[in-house]
Write a protein that binds this DNA or RNA. Structure first.
Lengths: 180, 180
DNA sequence: GGCTCCATGTAAGGAGTTACATGATTCA
DNA sequence: TGAATCATGTAACTCCTTACATGGAGCC
């Protein structure tokens, strides 16, 4: 069974053509919407798994600096298609949002601290929204850029929904709390 | 360093008072918005860690069926507060949405398959939305129920944002040909 | 006595993280 | 020549998952 990361690697190689493990790592590191740390200890074992499963194949160690290009095999392409098309009900679930998790227990804080914490939650969300909006400002010309842009837009919409939710909570908490 | 699960356990014990590991497990299993599998192999090692760190303490093995009640220590309460109040910028990031991940690579599918996949994505999202809306219909009387309700509302808003995004994509894709 | 929950664990295994290790290449 | 960067990896560790194991309590 392939992990999300495995499939994501297949997808990136599909989208941008044969590339080295180092390229994959750089690609993830540059992305604003990817969750993984994209450290070597993650990527290289993953490519090793994919090579063992014959979903990718390695070309000769060549190129400007002896980098080894990884390409999709026919089976790898099939695996990618299956991943995209096999939709289980668990994919519909809401994600694990660390801020939403915390809000469950905000009652543990005194009124003042709770207010400050909620402010902080809103603040970090706003900052990330600005980052994504900035990314959306860049023009998307190639298909790859347009695809990335769609992903960024999805992330942005999630964050805006979270922000609206946090603001609704603040309004509710303000009404309930005793006036100072 | 405590994991999200560790802190979540502290939070649940704070909210509902001393309880057994079995209770914690049941609690997570019943929740519609918790990401963990809440299997024994997750919960019991976690409580062990928290006991070792003296963030919770175990009462005598008593009660109706020899269950062992776990209670927050003073340090555990402090740890909970710190978790709620220490807000790093990474908390503002968008979450790892498996559907959003997949959309990045939808171009790998032929037009027809892509359309069908998008339909499926929308479908599972809609189903989960209905589940959460049903959960919101139940009246929330106790503070705990109101807190749960807030969390459910947050999850619902995330899903609705995702749905709106998926619909926007479908509209856009309707006229565009496959890249490559 | 058998059956079903309640309640608590352990064992094996996999994935991801951090940190460390190793060369080769480019550039000042 | 030395430093920075490119490029690939390994080692130790933690956490989570699945599956298995154990034993007591209540019930027919």
């Amino acid at each position: 069974m392939l992990t999300e990361l495995d499939n994501c690697i297949l997808g990136v190689i599909w989208r941008e053509g044969p590339m080295s493990a180092y390229d994959i790592r750089s690609h993830f590191a540059a992305s604003t919407t990817v969750a993984w740390s994209s450290s070597t200890g993650t990527i290289y074992p993953a490519t090793k798994r994919l090579l063992a499963a014959k979903l990718i194949e390695a070309g000769p160690r060549s190129g400007p600096r002896g980098r080894q290009l990884l390409a999709l095999t026919v089976e790898g392409n099939q695996a990618l298609h299956q991943w995209l098309e096999n939709v289980g009900p668990e994919l519909g679930s809401s994600t694990a949002d660390p801020l939403r998790t915390r809000v469950h227990f905000l009652g543990a804080l005194a009124s003042l601290q709770r207010k400050r914490a909620l402010d902080d939650y809103r603040e970090v969300t706003c900052e990330q929204i600005q980052v994504l909006e900035l990314a959306l400002d860049k023009p998307a010309r190639t298909p790859v850029e347009r695809s990335e842009r769609l992903g960024t837009l999805g992330a942005l919409m999630e964050l805006k929904a979270r922000l609206a939710w946090l603001e609704a909570i603040e309004a509710e908490v303000a009404g309930v709390a005793s006036p100072k």
